[in-house]
Simulated assay, not measured.
Amino acid sequence: MMTNLFSIFDPSTNLFNLPFNWLSTMIGLLFIPYSFWLIPNRHFYAWNFILNKLHLEFKTLLGNNIYSSTSTFIFVSMFFFILFNNFLGLFPYIFTSTSHLTLSLSLSLPLWLSFMLYGWINNTNHMFIHMIPQGTPGILMPFMVLIETISNIIRPGTLAVRLTANMIAGHLLMTLLSGTGPNFSYFLIILIFIQILLLILESAVAVIQSYVIAILSTLYSSEVN
């Protein structure tokens, strides 16, 4: 029985109060050797097709530079890592690590910080120019610099909060509906049907949020070159 509604997101367990639930973050790594040891099948071809499509799309977003053909694999790897964790959180009794800012900020903050350090050290003039959009009146330039600086600083926070909030919202809604089952036994079939629809929606959200995080990170990377 849950002590409160948010206990499903509690990372600690009853064994010496240690956060063993964070080990679920590494479960996705168990699926990777599958493509190397078994004969290529439809599952392997499907993942290979997705990987190639993402690589080409990220390469297009990064533009024509010497790093675009190789740096795309950073964002593809991040996409698959978040996707595995989002999907595994939909299974019963598996901890959803992406519903915590601890994990999402650990992904977005170092990535954004590395972009900023690279941009300000190697492309300082470009970073200054990017802070003022073309055609901005002279009187508005100080305000535009302030606005662009604030929007740039909050980027890792918005990436992390977007992922965390979407994961928490869907899981809370499913938990609320499942908890009302004993009170509305006459409408149990309707509740099951709604839960199935929510599960399909959460599966779509798991893919979309992984894609959004990877795309936005790629766009932030392309701005510093």
Rank of each mutant, 00 (worst) to 15 (best):
P33R: 02
P33A: 04
F36K: 14
N41K: 08
R42E: 12
H43K: 07
F44W: 07
Y45A: 13
W47H: 14
N48S: 13
F49N: 13
I50L: 15
L51F: 13
K53G: 04
L54W: 02
F58N: 03
F58G: 04
K59A: 10
T60A: 15
L61K: 14
L61V: 13
L62W: 08
G63M: 04
G63F: 10
N65A: 07
I66D: 14
Y67A: 12
Y67N: 11
Y67S: 08
S68H: 11
T70S: 11
S71Y: 09
T72M: 03
T72D: 12
V76D: 01
F81I: 06
F84K: 00
N86T: 07
F87V: 10
F87E: 03
L90G: 09
P92D: 08
F95C: 01
F95E: 00
T96H: 08
T96Y: 04
T102K: 09
L103S: 02
L105P: 05
L107R: 03
S108P: 02
L109R: 03
L109D: 01
L109G: 01
W112R: 00
G119L: 01
G119Q: 02
W120C: 06
N122Q: 10
N125A: 11
H126V: 01
H126P: 00
M127H: 05
F128H: 08
I132R: 00
I132M: 01
Q134L: 13
Q134F: 12
G135D: 04
G135K: 04
